[in-house]
Nucleic acid binder design. Structure first.
Lengths: 222, 222
DNA sequence: AAGCAATATAGACAGCGTCAAGTTGGCTTG
DNA sequence: CAAGCCAACTTGACGCTGTCTATATTGCTT
């Protein structure tokens, strides 16, 4: 997460990150400006030219930091996954990512659901890129994005395994299968909410409760 | 569904549908060609100009049948909803749409899930438009598309109410809430499958079973 | 001090959505 | 049967897009 705190000042001193020499740190500013533009005007409204102008460089300058518009979007998505992990996994504790939660009750599930959906709705500009067909269907994902994406899912599956080993979840549950179905539910709710289809944000709490109850029973194995 | 069987021949005899005079029936051909183009080359690859060329008219001709590219896409999506309803609701019987299913067991749910996901995966070019943020987020949906979309959801909710009235589903279940959550699961699975995220088609059967089991318990109210 | 590689720039091209103005041709009406 | 209306269609143009190809600038290394 340290990367996220790099100073965006105009001082032309590179931090030693190996990327920017000339401009200050264009790469960083491009990523931030891209996210902001998408958030403000929608993904469709983001163009490389507008982005370049927003940062104050010529239209082709960004191509020295990203091969493609696609590559730029992949990088933004990648950062989204990092933020996602930080917010969704282990909320307060200093120990992060790799450690798993040792409690399992309906409230814990409910909390996870809330965090997931809150992240999706409040960071839709990232979520759209992370889990939007745009990047995935193109078959041109950055290797690092793919890694980042699957890491997030793996953590989820491993958490379920961990619960099983601690005898908190029924052994009969197939971790992968359960992960796929429950993630689908969360993803579906998020997408429908973000896109404004069928679901409205007023019902989020009730839906989360309902889903938590459903997941809980499933994990208890009857 | 009769509309779908209009002959696409080059005979310049309009059927009396009130739309096309000059070309034959451009509107119909545009809708079909659009779906085909999206299916073959992806939604992003569809352009009004390519579409026009595919049908053999000038680039601005389509604008006499649709205000916008958006409007064209809405019309395609609308047709998607009609096909969706035809496939998903009451599979074999001649009585359609308005009548509800009178059986409720895990197999029935499982069948519905299969139909939903099969439709989504095999008609992704329609599903993407019907439930993609592209149209919905733009806030410019055709009134008729909106109607068609909400009708589909309403049928689903009403089916649950129907089960309750027949004492097949627990009275404690909130039909709307259950509909939202379960639809989210189906939508999420479909999206993840179509976009190639986390889920692969080999696991569809297992996931459907798991989801069916989850829904079934929920409907039984413990 | 020289030179090299990374960074930024301007120019050009094909493609896009769509507006405005003109053309064609079948139907309705006199 | 002729007049003319109007829907259907075409051509031209505009500003936007992503990105390729030079060209110029700059800082670090030697």
């Amino acid at each position: 997460m340290a990367k996220l705190e790099i100073e965006n000042s105009s001082v032309p001193l590179p931090v030693g990150e190996s990327k920017p020499y000339h401009h200050g740190d264009l790469r960083r500013q491009l990523l931030d400006a891209a996210a902001k533009l998408i958030r403000d005007e929608g993904e469709a409204a983001l163009s490389m030219r507008k982005l370049a102008q927003a940062v104050g460089v010529s239209r082709t300058a960004p191509y020295h930091h990203f091969n493609d518009k696609q590559a730029l979007l992949c990088a933004v998505a990648e950062e989204g996954f990092r933020r996602f992990r930080a917010i969704v996994t282990a909320g307060g504790g200093p120990a992060e990512a790799t450690t798993h939660v040792d409690v399992l009750d309906e409230a814990a599930i409910r909390q996870f659901i809330s965090r997931y959906i809150n992240f999706a709705v409040n960071n839709a500009e990232y979520y759209d890129l992370m889990f939007g067909g745009h990047l995935w269907k193109s078959q041109q994902l950055t290797a690092s994005l793919k890694a980042e994406a699957y890491a997030s899912f793996k953590i989820y599956v491993d958490q379920i395994r961990h619960w099983q080993q601690s005898r908190l979840a029924a052994a009969a549950v197939d971790p992968l299968r359960y992960a796929q179905v429950s993630w689908s539910t969360l993803h579906g709710m998020s997408r429908l909410l973000i896109d404004g289809i069928y679901l409205d944000s007023a019902a989020v709490a009730a839906m989360s409760d309902s889903a938590a109850n459903m997941f809980w029973r499933q994990l208890q194995g009857v």
